[in-house]
Amino acid sequence: MTPLRSFRIERSMIRGAVEITETARGLVPHRLPAWARRQIPDRFMIQTSAESAGVRLAIRTAADVIELDTQARRIADSADTPFPPSVYELTENGKPVASAGATAGTRYVFTFEKPSGEIVPGPDATARFEGLATGVERDLELWLPYHDHVELLGLRADAPVTAGSWNAAPRWVHHGSSISHGYRADSTTGTWPVVAALQAGAHLTNLSFSGNAMLDPFTARTIRDTPADLISVKIGINIISGDAMRLRAFRPAVDGFLDTIREGHPDTPIVVVSPIWCEPVESSAGPTIQDPDRGEQWTIAEGSEADVEDGKLSLRGIRAEYAAIVERRRADGDKRLRYLDGLSLYGGSDAAVMPLPDNLHPGPDVQRLIGERFADLILTEFTAPAAQPPGALV
């Protein structure tokens, strides 16, 4: 057996982050820059925006064994909540080739009833991949768990490890809610943006924050400043679930969000994606709440259709508004702005045969379905070798 050697984790290995900070022990990838992190408005977003959705290490190696040391933090409802191992994954040419488990040691104690945000420190962990049987050097991507904040501490292998090459695939930046963050997926490569990116061959930066796709200005500015060949935004369900806006505020907020992105990306294709099917708030207003009569989590609407008549938002209303806003902006000259109806990714007929397990979030089957459909409807057109050059999608 060849002994393992330590290799430096280089900044150039880290993909899917907008900023990387150096600690006394290692590197931390971030999906918001420091100035934006200082503007985060609540403790829940502090954790969810720090999680590693879509973040991975791009490496080149002929190793048979790879070990990654981490200090990981996961949200918990108490200081002693037990965790199952988090899933770390290796992919090659868009296909999973190995996975390894490592349990997050640190807890971020939070419930909506008691939102303390207390950090309870815990031990480091090691994800070990073995039996890779490469024999020759190849490019791999090592995906971090989408629900963990991860500090990268050390990398060992039985063959040299260097930063993977950066190919000419388009850079796709996506922003969305917990659905795009990946909650209820069984692993990071099962979250729909990663499914789509791997299928189509795009470089993904996933700026999706569970519970916090709220048209926040600091998120728009982050997207504005992030290099991209394609941008997509999928916003709506969090606004309804939190009853955060009325129609009067929503309309200019959407325009302002898009205007800010356009400041940094005047010619980049932008796809506005409306929400997928969610029966409780299709025609009724939010907020969404947990059904007190069910023994398991089950989402219902607290608002009504009458509330929508008074200016509150439903999913049908949001879809109509997005379609109208995109049509108006295209008529005003933004021909690289595009609307995608979220029901084409997951609609009522899909819900009849593939229901959402909590009446709100997609399970692993629907996460994969959405990713495959988004790749077919948007990404494949953009990334196909015979397609127009990056930036030409209209």
Rank of each mutant, 00 (worst) to 15 (best):
W298M: 06
D267K: 13
G317N: 08
P266G: 12
N238P: 02
R251I: 15
F250V: 06
G201I: 10
I325K: 05
T222W: 07
I223N: 01
T288Y: 09
I239N: 02
N206L: 05
I261Q: 08
P266M: 09
A197T: 06
A323K: 14
G242W: 09
E309D: 15
L247M: 08
E263N: 08
A200L: 10
R221G: 06
A202P: 00
V233F: 09
K335P: 00
S210M: 05
I223K: 01
M214Y: 08
A331F: 07
R336S: 07
F250I: 05
G333A: 12
D293M: 11
G303I: 01
A285R: 06
D293G: 08
I239M: 06
K234F: 10
S314R: 10
H265E: 01
W298D: 03
A220H: 03
V308Q: 12
A220P: 00
T268Y: 00
V308K: 11
L340A: 03
V271C: 05
P227Y: 11
P280R: 05
I231C: 02
Q297W: 13
K312G: 01
P217T: 07
E296F: 13
S304G: 11
A200F: 05
L313Q: 04
L215M: 11
D293R: 15
I240W: 00
R319G: 05
K312E: 15
R328Y: 07
T268E: 01
D267Y: 11
D291P: 04
D255Q: 12
G256R: 15
W277I: 11
R316D: 15
G264L: 09
D332V: 00
W277E: 13
S208P: 02
G211A: 05
Y339L: 07
A324S: 14
I235S: 00
E302H: 15
G264C: 06
Y339D: 00
N212W: 07
T219R: 10
T226N: 10
A213V: 08
R329K: 06
G303C: 09
P252V: 09
H203N: 05
I276E: 03
A249C: 03
K312Q: 14
R319W: 13
I223T: 03
A228P: 02
S283F: 14
I235N: 01
H265R: 06
T205W: 00
I240T: 01
D255N: 15
I289M: 12
A301Q: 00
V272N: 01
D291T: 07
G256K: 13
K234H: 14
D243F: 05
N238E: 02
V273Y: 06
A285S: 14
P252W: 08
K234N: 11
T299W: 06
